[in-house]
Nucleic acid binder design. Structure first.
Lengths: 340, 340
DNA sequence: AAGCCTCTTGCTCGCGTGAGCAAAACTTGC
DNA sequence: GCAAGTTTTGCTCACGCGAGCAAGAGGCTT
């Protein structure tokens, strides 16, 4: 069988094929797909038509090998029980894609898997890693940074003290101060703070801020109870257990929750297990303003993070080649509804 | 400044550097990172140590260029208001990663963006595309398939009639039949079916099945009302509007919902706007068994898809090089709670 | 019409790896 | 200790593209 002309069968059409079809060189073809490249309108059109006919699209693997930029970021996530994660993922992927970035989604299975997750990202030579998970210890981050494996390591929606890390987050201190003031103003006097899991690297300052502020300004020491994960079901169990062992008149008058995931679980239990009313018997506040918070069911007083602004800033950081301190805090908005 | 020994500075350590360090050839180094490769324990150890010291990890872009396998799949999603999406993403990414697949997450912004989303995947030369979104028309799929751009195009959690597509889903007909029988058995006689958005390619047969079955077996024609998206907030608005314009004695006695996202919105409105009890005044059923369905708040009677089995089958399909019909239907389990 | 400038095109070389083969090293049996 | 077999190692070539330079094609001025 004489091999006439190399069949170039589908799935493997290369710039050379298009070049032959269009009557130009391979480099002209590739230039047609790079927007910074200079190319005459005439050859651009020829290439366009030929590429269309053959179904050619440039191979980004090869492009990134040659140019040393992947236009890929890794998004490392765990904590999938938290509905806010869905919102963050939607916002981030939308804005990243609009700016030409693709997203590698890595499910960080557990605390001791974080290293492997970073390794996955590293093998794909991503341009940046974005952490929106919670299970990252300082030693894992340091290991990753030490190996200089990533140009940028961004901690999203969570502040980090690590100097080699870029943190894009809401200002927890001012946010929580605002919440504390609101809670006191509305007449609540026996708050119980429901805190999420402690992480060593990317700490939330919500509990500390609330407790310290309340003690200093309102004279009493608020109770705090930890929940092992940002999971409504878990939060529900913790609240039920905590309140089951005390008298009605020893109940808190408000549950201040580290985020909405915890608040939602708390509301469910208060209403359906304890048969109490919200906010008359026990009030609840959250943090994040997830979509559920607005529903007729929860009507949750919460704090809205400016996710879009944060994501826009993130792509700005990604695009920048400067070497400055990119850390930035945003301020959000207390959103008052009927739960407190 | 005499450049002694090429500093090989971080972020760019290649197999050659490791080879020099370990005193073996470059190919031995690469073999050390491929499990099918044959290599002596002694050199494996030498390479391991050298790689560790230099912080080397293989470059998957180059590997995939040379081997024509990326070990990458694209996950195309839209419909982020549906909480079930979070569950599916968690399950899929977990199982995919366990089997050595990385995931490219593509947010399919809207109906007319599907083509661009597929293009993104194509440029990364993913080994397969998994659709768990809803906005894919037949013509987009045909275009993608015609260009032979993907080895495998998998429609997950949704049946497709397209013969070039692999559909891994629950059997909607038997599931919905079971629900219809359950509903009738429990004495409900005036069901209203809340349907999601219609898509041309990957149809759900839930509405058709329910309506036809009910008509044939129970003699009356159920009402149906469409909701434009799987979004609790939207569903709530539709239910409110639908019921606002009729008398109390003209209400349905049960809302059969195409999925939990719709059911949740319905429950919220029934309870908090209409001030009616569930299930005494109006009952509700869903589909998917999202985590919220189990909460004390919703206690939703719903249908659980065997997501883990489906995901396990998916990776099996991905790994297979046969060219057979991979379509497969799973059966789930009716999960009875207090909402109906 | 010649000279100069600008825009476009083609080309060499390199990015980091894998397939597949040939050479080398090691085993085994007698 | 040697032949034959087996495992391991090194090598050539290819994967598809981009950086950066040199040559070519036009356009403008005088």
């Amino acid at each position: 069988m004489p091999d006439e002309k190399r069949p170039s069968f589908a799935g493997n059409i290369t710039a050379d094929d298009v070049a032959a079809e269009a009557g130009v060189s391979r480099w002209t073809v590739n230039r047609a797909f790079r927007k910074e490249a200079s190319i005459s309108p005439k050859s651009l059109e020829k290439v366009r038509i030929a590429a269309e006919r053959l179904g050619y699209v440039p191979d980004l693997r090869a492009a990134s090998l040659a140019s040393d930029r992947t236009n890929l970021v890794a998004l490392l996530i765990d904590d999938f029980a938290n509905p806010h994660k869905l919102v963050m993922m939607e916002r981030l992927t939308r804005i990243l894609r609009r700016e030409g970035w693709d997203t590698l989604l890595v499910n960080t299975l557990g605390r001791d898997d974080a290293g492997h997750a970073l390794m996955s990202a590293s093998q794909r030579r991503v341009d940046a890693v974005i952490l929106i998970g919670i299970q990252f210890d300082d030693d894992v981050l340091d290991a990753a940074l030490h190996a200089r494996r990533f140009r940028k390591l961004i901690i999203f929606a969570r502040t980090s003290r690590n100097p080699n890390t870029i943190s894009i987050a809401v200002d927890d201190v001012s946010a929580m101060t605002e919440i504390a003031n609101y809670v006191h103003e509305r007449g609540y006097r026996r708050p119980l703070f429901l805190a999420g899991p402690r992480t060593s690297s990317a700490h939330l300052l919500r509990k500390e801020t609330f407790v310290d502020y309340w003690r200093e300004h309102f004279g009493s020491e608020p109770e705090t109870v930890p929940v092992a994960a940002y999971d409504p079901a878990l939060s529900a169990a913790v609240v039920e257990e905590t309140l089951a062992k005390r008298n009605r008149d020893d109940f808190p008058d408000i549950l201040v929750c580290e985020n909405d995931a915890i608040a939602i679980g708390a509301i469910d239990v208060i209403r359906h297990k304890l048969k109490l009313r919200i906010p008359e018997d026990i009030a609840v506040t959250g943090f994040d303003d997830v979509p559920e918070a607005e529903s007729a069911n929860y009507r949750l007083t919460t704090y809205r993070q400016p996710l879009t602004d944060m994501a826009e800033y993130l792509v700005e950081v990604l695009g920048s080649s400067e070497d400055r301190d990119f850390d930035r805090m945003f301020s959000g908005r207390l959103t008052v509804r009927e739960s407190a």
